[in-house]
Amino acid sequence: MRTISPLLLAATGLALATLASALPAQGSPPAQEEVARGKAVFARHCAACHGRGPGDDGSPKLPGTAALAARYQGSLPGALEEREDLDTETILYFVRHGSGPMPMFRKTEVSDADVGAISAYLSASAASTKN
């Protein structure tokens, strides 16, 4: 996985501090309501690019999923819903900073709490896929 530099993470410190209070204690499973909310947020804001379905007009994958699959070359899944390693801090970094063709998302679109819910959903989804 691409490493996030401590400096860059430090830049998100304020947002993370705000977010921390909204998250369940580390190690405890996320509440089902949080997972359901995260699924809805993911469907609305992420799935059109990072979902598991095929892309348009014969493309085997959606653009974000295809790009990540190409980047990881099989070492990690391209689909975010199959990733077990995405914690809230990592997701928040990419949501707020973008990556290559992926633009940044504003708080008016995806709040810090929304990112926490996405994280909860992805954890649950990845576990479910694994099982």
Binding site: C49, D56, D57, P63, A66, G100, P101
Partner: peptide, 20 residues
């Protein structure tokens, strides 16, 4: 591009976005 042709929103076109 079938989605656009039938008025179905998509982000599939993002596959053409290269670099930054």
């Amino acid at each position: 591009r079938r989605h656009g042709a039938l008025g179905v929103p998509s982000l599939g076109i993002w596959k053409i976005v290269r670099e930054d």
